[in-house]
């Protein structure tokens, strides 16, 4: 298994240094993710919700439009009606929990860029047409939209932390675009 994992190569491994140099961007590689397409009212979905997110505060509720729910590193992101992206730590296998549901392992289809800090929102606004102001979008919000010329899923996980899910083939483009958009802000951090 260790041998197998060592053979992986993340879509942004070659830009790790440049991302780190900004001080506020990094790749979160190899996250497990599944696209699940089913009516949340279906019993199998209710069971899956309970299995994945059972907890005293979170009564197995699938997120409503534009929202993400999660406990710990595990999130369910609303992608569309009856369409969710379940995200978990690298290496987590959720196949058995999802048996009987139209759930597709898409872990390798996307990678995640995380932006955090006071300039994260401004950097994103250079290429994202949706309103990211706290009155419109905050922790727990998610959206499928465009960032620059790439289609992304945007997930705000904390006050100043955003995850950008981007298809693996677009990751190099989007990371280079973000690095360019970040130049002004990097300098401001240095000053």
């Amino acid at each position: 298994m260790a041998d197998l994992l060592a053979q992986r190569r993340s879509p942004l491994a070659h830009l790790a240094g440049e991302l780190a140099a900004t001080g506020f961007m990094r790749e979160l590689p190899y996250l497990s993710s599944y696209e699940v397409r089913a009516d949340p009212a279906e019993p199998a979905m209710a069971r899956l919700g309970a299995a994945l997110f059972a907890g005293p505060l979170l009564a197995a509720a699938w997120p409503t439009a534009g929202r993400a729910v999660g406990t710990g590193p595990r999130y369910a992101l609303w992608c569309g009606p009856g369409w969710y992206l379940v995200v978990d730590e690298p290496g987590t296998t959720l196949e058995s929990a999802m048996a009987g549901l139209p759930a597709v392992d898409v872990s390798a289809a996307r990678t995640v860029l995380e932006l955090t800090g006071p300039f994260a929102r401004d950097v994103l606004a250079h290429g994202c047409a949706i309103d990211l102001h706290p009155r419109a979008f905050g922790p727990g919000s998610c959206a499928q939209t465009h960032l620059a010329k790439a289609q992304v899923i945007l997930h705000q996980t904390a006050t100043a932390t955003y995850r950008v899910f981007v298809r693996a083939s677009y990751a190099d483009y989007l990371a280079r675009w973000l690095l360019d958009a970040a130049v002004e802000y990097v300098r401001r951090i240095d000053e």
Binding site: P102, V104, D105, A109, R110, R167, S169
Partner: peptide, 9 residues
């Protein structure tokens, strides 16, 4: 249900 897996593989 149809899911794009172009980038998965």
């Amino acid at each position: 249900s149809a899911t794009s897996v172009t980038d998965q593989w």
